[in-house]
């Protein structure tokens, strides 16, 4: 297991696993909020729709296309492109 940080909290995760799947499990499908405050989760799951954009190490990334790396810092709010 490798620790990563999600919204400031340390979370145990497995390196190489899919970040979108982890956030889906952790958030009971809720993954982030839009600019208007509406909750969103995984939608297309294959990089097409940008609903799952979060900040990874300060840069926007689609969680569904992101493999977990040890020490990764994830912010679910503010990732809106």
């Amino acid at each position: 297991m490798s620790d990563i940080t999600i919204d400031g909290e340390t979370v145990a995760a497995t390196a190489g696993d899919n970040l979108g799947a982890l956030l889906h499990r952790l958030g009971d499908a809720r993954l982030r909020a839009t600019l208007s405050g509406a909750p969103r989760g995984l939608f297309c799951g294959m990089g097409t729709c940008f609903d799952c954009v979060v900040l990874v190490d300060g840069k926007p990334a689609r969680a569904c296309l992101t493999a977990i790396r040890p020490g990764m810092v994830v912010e679910r709010q503010g990732g809106q492109p």
């Binding site: 993954l31 969103r40 989760g41 995984l42 939608f43 297309c44 799951g45 294959m46 569904c64």
Partner: peptide
């Protein structure tokens, strides 16, 4: 959240 495509569910 929880509404997604069949493709997304399959990949998960």
């Amino acid at each position: 959240p929880g509404v997604m495509t069949p493709g997304a569910g399959q990949r998960l």
